[in-house]
Every structure is written in C-alpha cells, then in structure tokens.
C-alpha cells in the first residue's frame, strides 16, 4: 500500500493512489476507481469531505462522503470503502474495503488537498464565503487547508491552554454573528488563584470561528468533550456513529436527516432550535442543514473503548431507556 507520485494531467492536477484506490480530478469532478468499480463526485464536495477527515483525523466512526465512498475510523487504522454501507453495492458484490495505517491515508488526503485546492477556495468555508473549486489548477490555499483544530486540555482561556480568539489573532467576528455580544465575564480572582478562576464568552468565541462543520474541543471533563462548531449550508459528509452522540443547539436552527447507518434507509428528521437537546443513536448516520450560520454544541464521550463495549453489549446503542 503505497502512494504513487505521477506527473500532473493536462489541467495541472496530480493523480493519487493508495492501496487499491486511485483518484483523479478534472475541472469539475473527482473520479475514484477501485478493483471492482468506479465513482465520481463534484470536486468541491470531495474537497470539503477530505478536509473534514484530515481535520478530524477521521472523527468518531464513519465519515460517508456520499452513499458510496467513505472512511471508517478504528483509531490507529482506518478503512476506506466503496459501497460498504450501500445495500445495492453489497448485494451486487462490487463493494470494496481496504484498511490503512491512519497516517498513510491522512498523508494521501493531505497531499490531495494541497494539490487540488485552488487559490481562493477554502473547503472549510461556507459557499458564500469562498471562491470556486472548479477549473484548471491555479495556485493553492495551503494556509486554509492546514488549519490546526482546537483541542483544549481543560478549557479555552485557562492559562497554558487554548487561547481566546480576537481581531488581533486573525479571527474577526463572522458576518452572520455581527450581533453576538462580545463582552467577557467579570473575573475577580484572589491572588494566587488566577489560573483556576477562569471563564470566557463561548458564544463570542464561536462567533469568531472561521470554519464550518468542524467540531473543536473547548472543554474536557475527563472523557466528556464539548466540541462546539459553527454551521452554515450543509454538513458535507454523512456521519455514521460508532457511539451515541449528543447535540445541543446553542443558536438558530439546524435540520438533520437521520438514516440507518448500514442501509441508508430514512429513520427520522430532527429539527433543532436554540436550547434543544437531542441524541443521535449509535446505529444511525446523519447529515445536517443550517440555513443561517448557527452554533451547535456537539457533545462526545471520547472513550476509545466504546465501539468494543457496544459490540459486546456493554454500552447502549440508544442514549437512555425510559
């Protein structure tokens, strides 16, 4: 399983290969081939998907790019698949799955992002805030595609932990959050306790996020992780859970389509408004739609033991019984 390094095509784009998968792009599309089939996706969608996989390091569970292609995280190794969670592909026996060392597939996706992202296009940005992904190769946007994901050890703003965002640090308030109060809490710490009396304005912090659909850790209570994110337009991937995941809608509204994780059969739609809380069961996949930029608190239990616990029946597929 090695990546090949070929010369660019006539449009200036390099082809890539990892294991049995090959990837090529033209002005509009990415073509993926594997030993039993092939598939095409619009290149802007493709870049948004692999950007999340890179930023999240494959996140929890399954990241479906669409109904055919995706990745499944085993936390150290990762599967790339075609048709694995598509009943028709499985029935026709043209589905394909290959397991990679996490770094090998990440390396392939990082190289692809660098080569296939043109100057002015930002896969993290909402469509209204970025240029076009299409056309022949034209420069790059490495600064955008190599952003570091926020991972707080205790909480954002605690001395030594992740810093606050500001105009000066390159995080202006987003156009859709111009009305969000920027005042910080009043902190009156006694001498010697400055590092433990800590508080910050989470909503102001989120209003300055320059990415969409990219959960970042702002606080950690052991393995309980607050991963808020700002959302606009659509979640580019269809996230398949390997554990129960919770959402708290902090502002505005998101609508979710929920499907069976393995077959794609529709199970529910979940409409979330400010203050709403909902669980996503461990056996579903979901994608979201946010018509106005919104603030979503994604709450995860980061324990690496959970997929095995669910498989053994030691952890529930559904959040609570009542």
């Amino acid at each position: 399983m090695t990546m090949i390094d070929e010369a660019p095509n006539s449009l200036g784009y390099r082809p890539f290969s990892v294991g049995g998968f090959t990837f090529a792009r033209d002005e509009y599309f990415v073509t993926v081939e594997w030993p039993t089939g092939n598939h095409q996706m619009p290149v802007d969608h493709w870049l948004r998907c692999i950007q999340r996989d890179v930023a999240w390091e494959f996140f929890y569970g399954i990241v479906n790019f669409d109904s055919v292609i995706g990745t499944m995280n085993h936390y150290g190794t990762v599967d790339m698949f075609a048709g694995r969670f598509n009943e028709a592909y499985r029935r026709a026996e043209v589905d394909y799955n290959e397991t990679f060392d996490e770094e090998e597939l990440l390396g392939c996706f990082r190289a692809m992002l660098s080569d296939w992202t043109n100057e002015g296009y930002d896969p993290f940005a909402a469509p209204l805030e970025t240029g076009s992904a299409f056309g022949p190769s034209s420069g790059d946007n490495d600064e955008a595609v190599t952003r570091k994901r926020v991972v707080a050890e205790r909480m954002v703003s605690v001395p030594g932990d992740e810093p606050l965002r500001s105009d000066e640090s390159g995080f202006p308030v987003n156009r859709a959050f111009a009305d969000v109060d920027q005042s910080e809490p009043v902190i009156e710490a006694e001498p010697g306790y400055e590092s433990e009396v800590c508080s910050f304005n989470l909503y102001a912090y989120l209003s300055r996020s320059d990415v969409t659909w990219n959960p970042s850790i702002v606080s950690a209570c052991k393995e309980s992780l607050y991963c808020p994110t700002t959302e606009e337009f659509t979640l580019p991937v269809i996230h398949g859970n390997d554990r129960v995941e919770w959402f708290v809608q902090l502002s505005d509204e998101i609508q979710w389509d929920v499907e069976d994780r393995d077959t794609g059969a529709k199970r529910a739609r979940v409409i979330m408004k400010a203050g709403d809380v909902a669980a996503m069961p461990a056996d579903i996949r979901h994608t979201g739609y946010s018509p106005k930029r919104s603030m979503l608190l994604v709450w995860e239990n980061g324990s690496p033991r959970i997929p095995e616990m669910i498989a053994k029946g030691e952890a529930p597929v559904h959040p609570v019984d009542f």
Partner: peptide, 15 residues
C-alpha cells in the same frame, strides 16, 4: 480560602 468570583452572562462558560 476564597478563590474569587465570576459574574457570567449568556454564553459565558466557567470552570
């Protein structure tokens, strides 16, 4: 020993 006080409003998160 008193450590201090935080006065927090909507959106403010305190450890």
């Amino acid at each position: 020993s008193p450590m201090g006080t935080v006065t927090a409003q909507r959106g403010h998160m305190t450890m």
